[in-house]
Design a protein around this nucleic acid. Structure first.
Length: 401
DNA sequence: AGGTATTCACATGAAACTATTCTCTGAGTTAGG
DNA sequence: TAACTCAGAGAATAGTTTCATGTGAATACCTGT
C-alpha cells in the first residue's frame, strides 16, 4: 500500500459511518443504570446489607450461579448505591472488592492477605515476611479503618481451589479479635457445588445467607440484549431476528449474558470491518468462531514452553482420528523435546499439564478404561482443522522447530 | 454359561526437592565533623 | 559517628520429581452344568 493509498484508507475510515454509537455498552465492564430481571436478588441482597448502614455487621453472604448470570454486576450495583447513602449520612462503611481469578494476586494465602492489606492502604512486601506477620499487619489495617468493612470475594471457588479454605476460616474468625471494626464477607462463586466441600465451620459462617442466581432465560436475555444494542448500535443496522437468534443461542448455552453481549459486539466489529451495510445473522456465526479462535490462541501462546510442547504434541496427532491417549502424547512429546532442546518432563507431570490444558478449555479430556488394556485419558480437540493448523504453525515458531 | 480374579496403563495423591525471588539484618565501609 | 552498602539469612513460591496407591472393565481362568 503506497502512502497515498494508506492516507486515503484512513480518510475513508473517518468518513465511513461506524456501526457503533457506544461500544462500551456491550462490554462486560459496563454498568447499566438499572439492572433488569434481577429484582428479586437485588432486593434480597439489599435487605441483608442494609443493617450495615446502622453500623451493625450484616450477615455473611454467599452468592452462586452460573457465569454471566449477573452476580458481579448486581453486587457492584448495590455497593454503588449503598455507598452513596453511607456517604450522605457519613457512615463508616467500606467495601473491598477482590477478584480471586486474577492470578498473581490470589495464588497463595499470603498474596491475598497482602493484597487486601494494600487495598486498605498498607504497603506490604510481596514476599519475605512470615504469613503470620502479614495477618498482623492486615488486622492492624482493618482496626485502623474502623466501622464496617465488607470483603467481596469474587470467584471465591478459584481461591479455595488454589489455597484452601483456611484463609476463609481466619477471615470469618477475625471479628472476635477486632474491637473498632467489624468485617463481613460476600462470596461469589460460579461453581454450584463449591460449598459442599468446604470445612463445615467455614461453610456455616460464610453462608449465613445464600442467594442463588438462576441463569437468564431466552426472553430475559433478549430483553437485556435489546436494551444494550439500542445503546450500542446505530438504528436500523441490525437485521431482523438477529437479537432473537443471538439470545436464543446464548440461552441454550447456559444463559450466559456476558457471552451473549460479546458475541454481538464481535459480530458488529466483523461486519463493520467488512464494509457490510448491515449486521446479519451470518456475522454471528463468524463471530462465534472468531471468539473461540482468539481465546485458544491467546491462552496457548501465554503458556510456558513445556505446555506449548505438550499442546503441539497433542495437535500433531489429533489429525483426523478423534481419540488420543496419554501414552501416545508422551511418546511424541519426548521426541519433540529432543528436537526443540527442552528437557523432557516425567509422565506424571505431563498428566498434570494435560489436565490444566483441559481446565483452560483448549482440549477436552475424559478418563476411560480400556479394560484389559488399561486406564487412560482420552483427549479430544474440538477445533477447526484450519485453526489447528494455525496454532501449530505459530507453536513451531515459538518452539523453534 | 456364568462368575471371579487378573491385569493393564495409566490416574491420582502426597511429599520432598530445586531454583528463584524478594525482604530484612547487620557487619563492614565511607564521609563528614 | 552517622549514613550507606551489600552479602547472606529467611521466607515463600513455582515447577518438578519420586514414591505410593488407586481404578474400571476387557480378558483369562475357573466352576459346575
Amino acid at each position: 500500500m503506497s502512502q497515498k493509498d494508506l492516507e486515503g484508507f484512513f480518510q475513508g475510515f473517518l468518513k465511513k459511518e461506524s456501526f457503533f454509537i457506544n461500544k462500551k455498552a456491550l462490554q462486560s465492564s459496563y454498568m447499566p443504570e438499572t439492572i433488569n430481571h434481577r429484582e428479586k436478588e437485588i432486593k434480597q441482597l439489599a435487605n441483608i446489607l442494609a443493617p450495615s448502614l446502622r453500623n451493625d455487621k450484616p450477615s455473611n453472604i454467599f452468592l452462586y450461579g452460573k457465569p454471566g448470570a449477573g452476580k458481579t454486576l448486581t453486587v457492584k450495583h448495590i455497593i454503588k448505591n449503598i455507598l452513596s447513602v453511607a456517604k450522605q449520612s457519613s457512615v463508616n462503611l467500606n467495601f473491598l472488592y477482590l477478584n480471586c481469578k486474577l492470578r498473581k494476586i490470589s495464588d497463595t494465602e499470603y498474596r491475598i492477605i497482602a493484597q487486601l492489606g494494600r487495598e486498605l492502604g498498607r504497603t506490604i512486601p510481596t514476599t519475605g515476611l512470615p504469613t503470620e506477620e502479614v495477618y498482623k499487619m492486615f488486622s492492624d489495617a482493618i482496626e485502623n479503618k474502623g466501622g464496617i468493612i465488607i470483603f467481596v470475594l469474587d470467584e471465591i471457588d478459584q481461591l479455595v481451589k488454589k489455597v484452601g479454605d483456611e484463609i476463609l476460616y481466619n477471615l470469618t474468625r477475625m471479628n472476635e479479635e477486632l474491637k473498632k471494626t467489624q468485617i463481613g464477607i460476600i462470596g461469589i462463586s460460579n461453581d454450584l457445588k463449591f460449598a459442599d466441600n468446604l470445612d463445615p465451620r467455614v461453610r456455616s459462617s460464610l453462608s449465613e445467607e445464600k442467594i442463588s442466581f438462576s441463569p437468564y432465560d431466552a426472553i430475559q436475555l433478549q430483553a437485556i440484549l435489546k436494551e444494550r444494542c439500542i445503546l450500542a448500535f446505530k438504528e436500523g443496522i441490525l437485521e431482523e431476528g438477529l437479537i432473537e437468534k443471538c439470545s436464543a443461542f446464548a440461552a441454550s448455552d447456559g444463559g450466559d449474558a456476558r457471552r451473549c453481549l460479546e458475541l454481538m459486539r464481535v459480530a458488529g466489529e466483523i461486519a463493520e470491518r467488512n464494509n457490510e451495510p448491515m449486521l446479519k445473522i451470518k456475522h454471528l456465526d463468524e463471530a462465534e468462531e472468531k471468539i473461540e479462535r482468539d481465546m485458544v490462541f491467546e491462552t496457548v501462546l501465554a503458556q510456558p514452553k513445556q505446555f506449548q510442547a505438550v499442546m503441539y504434541s497433542i495437535l500433531s496427532i489429533s489429525k483426523g482420528n478423534s481419540y488420543i491417549f496419554t501414552g501416545d502424547v508422551y511418546n511424541i512429546y519426548k521426541t519433540l523435546c529432543i528436537k526443540a532442546g527442552l528437557r523432557p518432563l516425567t509422565q506424571r507431570r505431563l498428566t498434570d499439564i494435560v489436565a490444566e490444558l483441559d481446565m483452560l478449555g483448549i482440549i477436552n479430556t475424559k478418563v476411560i478404561s480400556k479394560g484389559r488394556y488399561g486406564r487412560t485419558k482420552q483427549i479430544t480437540v474440538s477445533l477447526h482443522e484450519v485453526v489447528i493448523d494455525k496454532i501449530k504453525r505459530s507453536l513451531e515458531d515459538v518452539l523453534e522447530i
